[in-house]
Design a protein around this nucleic acid. Structure first.
Lengths: 349, 349
DNA sequence: TTGTAGGCGTTATCAG
DNA sequence: CTGATAACGCCTACAA
């Protein structure tokens, strides 16, 4: 009967430091210290402990460690959708940086919904994440669900979609400058009536992009025509077709389009081509994000490149610095650089 | 003096059930039970507890709950790369299903590396995930790092990239059938010399896809020409160009190409067009995955559609059933259906 | 209906 | 150099 017991030596992995301690005739504190090569433990003891741990397949229980240390190693990430090129690169960068440092990444999608974002934040809080990275839902205009983290000393870094608040840590691009440069590029290519597809205006990001567009027009003395300022809410390819039709059927249609993302820009190219409008001769187009699709659509789509993976890594790096109290090294706002990638869709000269 | 206490009402969120208990003059077990509306607790007590909990901003500590219950609510996910259309949809589906059930999703990327996959699995194990979803790295041919979970009673579901092992839970498509259908489609469109870009052959998935291609040729009495069977390792767009050049510069070039993914198919279209090869008249092409790019490349790329998000949801659903001991409801192998999406790149009739 | 006590696995403090 | 003890926050027999 004890036989069966011994035979089932299937390395059960509930081995704890106490099991090791018992078998070695030492205390569990000694085991705990030996496992992390604490200097105060004798060489032999340490070796013996580590060897037995390996033999029995001991695995530390991070749940217990985190509870005891009052500090977990899980970073929470909230994004609107994972399956979008820019965001999946962003998340990929976060995951890479976090894992290299031995941290886990908890992921969640808000689907652009404020309520879901609140729920996700709440779940993360209860899971005692050690830090939060958020790219806000378009719906989100209040931040109480984020404030709870700060109140508990859990650092938060906003990425890309950020709130209008100077107090918080942000990693982003200069959205105004980006669309300014994009608009400027179109102007330099000879466009004089440039339309802009803007995103949901309550999102600061889209507001700034609008502003860059307007500022560029002003700088070059081009009139601002309200009819040329369209607003998108979903920013899907489908919506892109609607916008394209709207813009191109104006009595006085645009000769250039600055789209707030590549989805809508691509749809516009497809729509224009189907109507016999030549790109870029009749209509120059530039998108935003520099998604992979830019080099596949014909003509290739000019776009504003923003470094997704780098933004993710940077956000994680900032998070770690804040956790390590090297706050002085972390600027409230980090601006990553963007650049216009000039491709056929906008090159008229 | 108690005043100051009351005034500093900055809801510090380290409130525990003991704090609530103390303030209400009850025991912490009562609080614990009241919070989950245990029937044995008086209505008034329950109400009082919940109200105070809300006032003080009490938040349950999942770390402690999991430790105590010996069961966490975190699902680990290992995929090769997040930022690929199919995989990000897969992960998105997983996240959605998991979160709806109140579970967290821990994500990690293997970058197709066996060693990194092992490291990720190890980290997850230490974090005491309650279940694992894996889509294996191409390098992976051994599964000891996965076995540890099974040995500890932690369910594992393989998704898409699965091992050659009947014992494990798998959610996948019928890869052989998929490429069989795709090849058949090309044959029905009049192709007689069909080339195939295969993936790393050690991955069962790619082996099966090769087999479907070969079987279809056989069924229709077409000769199998080794020169038409190319092998890709990275499956990147860049590699697609190399493969395209290799295939199209053969002495007797193919009139149809079955690519193992859309990346390489798209590159082939671009390459062929640059060489004046007409698609689909001179060369019919079909890809695999049905990435968004298929409807943007011109001509639109035919492809094999596989339901990414559904696979992810299904995997999570299976995991939950296994956790709930409803094992009888979970088939070892779940095959999701695929279909050929016929587009211009292959329609010659 | 409520309270007591013990423990989940680990680490930190203090003592030897 | 090592050990005993007490937490971390929660849950759950068992008692009352």
């Amino acid at each position: 009967m004890p036989r069966t017991h011994l035979i089932s030596m299937k390395k059960k992995s509930n081995v704890t430091i106490h099991d090791l301690a018992r078998q070695l005739g030492v205390s569990s504190s000694t085991v705990s210290r030996a496992l992390k090569s604490h200097h105060s433990i004798g060489e032999e003891t340490t070796k013996a402990v580590k060897q037995l741990a390996a033999e029995l397949g001991y695995r530390p229980n991070n749940l217990a460690v985190s509870l005891r240390k009052q500090h977990s190693t899980s970073i929470g990430v909230i994004v609107p959708h994972i399956n979008r090129p820019f965001i999946s690169s962003l998340v990929s960068g976060m995951e890479q940086a976090a894992r290299e440092a031995g941290y886990n990444v908890l992921i969640s999608q808000s689907y652009e919904s404020y309520d879901i974002e609140i729920g996700n934040a709440s779940a993360f809080f209860n899971s005692r994440i050690c830090g939060l990275l958020v790219s806000c839902a378009n719906e989100t205009t209040q931040y109480a669900h984020i404030q709870q983290f700060k109140d508990s000393g859990i650092p938060v870094v906003f990425v890309d979609r950020i709130p209008e608040n100077d107090e918080c840590y942000k990693v982003m691009i200069d959205n105004r400058e980006a669309t300014f440069k994009a608009t400027e590029h179109l102007i330099q290519q000879g466009c004089r009536r440039i339309a802009h597809y803007g995103g949901p205006p309550q999102q600061l990001m889209y507001h700034l992009r609008r502003q860059g567009y307007i500022d560029a027009l002003a700088k070059y003395g081009l009139p601002f025509d309200e009819n040329l300022l369209l607003t998108a809410t979903k920013l899907t390819p489908e919506e892109g077709f609607v916008l394209a039709e709207k813009a191109l059927s104006l009595p006085n249609p645009p000769d250039g389009i600055l789209a707030v993302n590549d989805n809508t820009a691509v749809s516009t190219i497809l729509y224009a081509k189907s109507k016999g409008i030549r790109i870029p001769q009749d209509l120059a187009i530039i998108g935003f994000n520099d998604d992979p699709v830019c080099t596949i659509i014909e003509p290739n789509l000019s776009s504003l490149h923003q470094p997704g993976a780098e933004m993710g890594k940077m956000a994680v790096s900032h998070l770690f610095k804040i956790l390590d109290n090297e706050i002085v090294d972390v600027p409230r706002t980090t601006i990553l650089s963007t650049h216009v990638v000039q491709r056929e869709s906008s090159l008229r000269i």
